[in-house]
């Protein structure tokens, strides 16, 4: 049911002239894509610096809250640019993205990374009066930072692999994979052939 809804929405987006124009514009599409990739260095680059401090692997001689607060603004600027360009990239190729298993895993990882970031932020609030200047923060903070880096690395990895067509709907796959990738028509055809 959800797969059908998502596909209908993607097909509706695909009927927009702007979606087609963006996809077919060599310079515009590549500029948006290039900006999305390059802004990784701003958003995730700043996040990596913060997380490495929380892991006790960098800036051990600087209070953790100083690193987190001072890099927050450039990191959030990077995040906004990534979200805007990310939506534009989805808008340019809505159907294939909706039916990409990698894109779906990326969205799940993004949600998990977002929840982890919210929990992490709350833990950080207690830093100033306790472990702020410790070179090696407490274990719960290190676990949160490690999880953050792992989840975001997963987002980057799945984002990059969307470009490969290994599990696109036109490939021969199991019914589970058709369902997971949201290949509604292919799954129906497979079930009809099987039944």
């Amino acid at each position: 049911m959800l797969n059908e809804l998502l596909l209908s929405f993607a097909e509706w987006l695909d009927t927009h002239a702007w979606s087609t124009n963006l996809h077919e514009s060599y310079y515009m599409y590549n500029w948006v894509e290039g900006t999305h990739v390059l802004t990784l260095m701003v958003f995730l680059g700043m996040l990596a610096v913060i997380d490495l401090r929380m892991l006790g692997l960098a800036f051990k001689d600087v209070p953790a809250s100083t690193i987190a607060h001072r890099l927050d603004t450039p990191m959030m600027i990077g995040f906004v640019v990534m979200v805007v360009t990310g939506f534009l990239l989805f808008y340019a190729i809505p159907v294939r993205s909706t039916n990409s298993i990698w894109f779906r895993i990326k969205v799940v990882l993004l949600i998990a990374a977002g929840i982890n970031a919210l929990l992490f932020r709350n833990k950080m609030k207690g830093a100033v009066n306790s472990w702020d200047t410790d070179p090696l923060p407490p274990k719960r903070i290190r676990v949160g930072a490690g999880l953050s880096l792992t989840l975001w690395a997963g987002v980057v990895a799945t984002g990059r692999i969307i470009a490969y067509d290994w599990y696109d709907c036109h490939q021969q796959m199991s019914s589970f994979m058709y369902w997971a990738a949201g290949c509604v028509n292919e799954l129906a055809a497979l079930e009809q052939a099987g039944g």
Partner: peptide, 18 residues
């Protein structure tokens, strides 16, 4: 390998930018 190339670009870019 491409993903690792990209991830090390993130770290390099983050550190250079900082």
């Amino acid at each position: 390998v491409q993903v690792f190339h990209l991830l090390s670009m993130v770290v390099l870019g983050g550190m250079i930018l900082t």
